[in-house]
Design a protein around this nucleic acid. Sequence first.
DNA 1: AAGAGTACCAACCGCCACTTC
DNA 2: GGAAGTGGCGGTTGGTACTCT
Length: 232
Amino acid sequence: MVRTPCCEKMGLKKGPWTPEEDQILISHIQRYGHANWRALPKQAGLLRCGKSCRLRWINYLRPDIKRGKFSKEEEETILKLHGILGNRWSTIAARLPGRTDNEIKNFWHTHLKKRPERSQVQRMMNNNFFSANPLQESQAEAGSSSGTSINMRRVTVDASATSSVPGKVLVANDESLPSKKNPAIAGLGFYGPVSSDISGVTFGNNSHSDIGEEREFWYNMFMTSQRRGMEM
DNA sequence: AAGAGTACCAACCGCCACTTC
DNA sequence: GGAAGTGGCGGTTGGTACTCT
């Protein structure tokens, strides 16, 4: 299929948003919502492409955005979830109310990526919790920025350097390959219902979620271990 | 004080999956 | 069933602020 450009290049503004543009976008969305991002800038009178508007709204203008420093708990949550999910920032963001995937991604690259605890977390995840084999651990150790490789019985988070798509979640046998909208472990969209926080009760009580039971099982195992105060 | 190096983060780009016709 | 349109995701970049020498 021939891809159409996300927006006409001509005459559309790029770069940092001005307070005026922000205000226009906010008031337009408050009044009319954002059913169609592509049409929105035209309707609102903004010289931006729809993608840019969407990004600006989701990452900075939404009323429920939590700004400021990440708490210790949030850091730990990111580390642990990244150990399971790899670079699935939107899924991780879904577990951190008020935080966006972009923010978490930036935070990871600037703070957590180089932290020594990170590799410790991954080692724990690989060896003690999910019983990964030594090869996978060495892949993770050797690895890339997203060097995580966790084997669960049928669900593999493969973020090794050898993976064609680092961080992609692969499913081993009879299940269909997960899609972005149905990731192998946690698939709630940013606006989707988040059933619990990291210390919460159960993952996956979203009736609209089609996350597989087994995936849910492994995720709940992880959450349960956290609630028990398992050292990771 | 000034230049160089580094850290941080907002925004863009390209791709993929889903939906609609 | 396939093309076209759209939304969303993750990787990357570029500008700015900060720190060091």
